[in-house]
């Protein structure tokens, strides 16, 4: 194994470059090093001007999503040796405006997220103790509660690229996380946004969101499942008189 590997890192400094350019750095190639360790080596020892987000370095905070050799990944959970002998091409997440180097603007997601009301909705006062929920009922939504908001699914989704109004995989999965929670009564409140043209119906099931998801959330599955729910509701609304729905 060679003892170094070349990282080609996309640089974009507003005012300095009109569009991103690649800059190459040689970094030590070590078995334990994630792509993020390579970037940290560059920032600490070679070029302090390189900007990127990172925090927990254990794949749970969702900060360090990047495009590595064309695929959206968490750079803390993707290892340099998997790309040996290199070069490793590191770019910002696709489908987002680039703020600087590897930092993207996720404001669009942050603005859309509240629109699907991803919180527990109940009309009544909570009980004295806990809401009862069996392990089976927990399993019904558990998978969708694993989303770390890392944005890899948005980066992988060609529909989001073509139609930025699309609510998107993570937000819909989080809406489903609450819809499928036995404690929640807010499905009707979420229906308008989810059933809209920018909601589940914008999805054409490319499935890349679920492939890209580092936490096994399966947003594509969440969306397909909601399509069935939405279709059933539309049919009911059409067929049944108002009182019987």
């Amino acid at each position: 194994m060679a003892d170094t590997i070349t990282m080609q890192v996309a640089r974009y400094r507003p005012g300095q470059e009109a569009e991103p350019v690649f800059q190459s750095y040689d970094v030590p190639l070590r078995k334990e090093w994630a792509v993020l360790d390579g970037l940290n080596h560059i920032k600490d020892h070679v070029d302090g001007t390189l900007s990127y987000r990172w925090s927990c370095r254990m794949g749970i905070c969702g900060s360090c999503g990047m495009t590595v050799n064309g695929s959206p990944v968490l750079s803390c959970a993707t290892f340099l040796t998997d790309y040996a002998p290199g070069p490793v091409r590191v770019e910002p997440l696709r489908n987002f405006p680039v703020v600087r180097d590897l930092v993207v603007d996720i404001g669009d997601f942050m603005a859309k997220l509240p629109s699907v009301k991803p919180w527990l909705i109940r009309d009544d006062e909570p009980p004295e103790g806990e809401y009862l929920q069996t392990p089976d009922e927990l399993d019904d939504y558990k998978k969708f509660s694993m989303c770390i908001n890392c944005m890899l699914c948005y980066s992988a989704c060609p529909v989001y690229a073509l139609d930025p109004a699309f609510v998107g995989p993570a937000a819909i999965a989080l809406a489903q996380r609450y819809n499928l929670d036995s404690r929640d009564e807010g499905a009707a409140d979420r229906r308008d946004v989810l059933s809209s043209a920018e909601g589940v119906w914008a999805c054409t099931f490319v499935g890349e969101c679920s492939t890209a998801c580092p936490k096994g959330v399966d947003p594509a599955g969440a969306i397909q499942r909601y399509k069935l729910t939405a279709a059933t509701h539309a049919l009911k609304d059409f067929l049944l008189p108002r009182g019987a729905r």
Binding site: L120, E130, T134, L138, Y178
Partner: peptide, 15 residues
């Protein structure tokens, strides 16, 4: 719990 935290449960549905 009332806000939706997915606490692990016992078989009878309690925390």
């Amino acid at each position: 719990e009332h806000w939706g935290c997915p606490w692990s449960r016992q078989r009878d549905g309690r925390i």
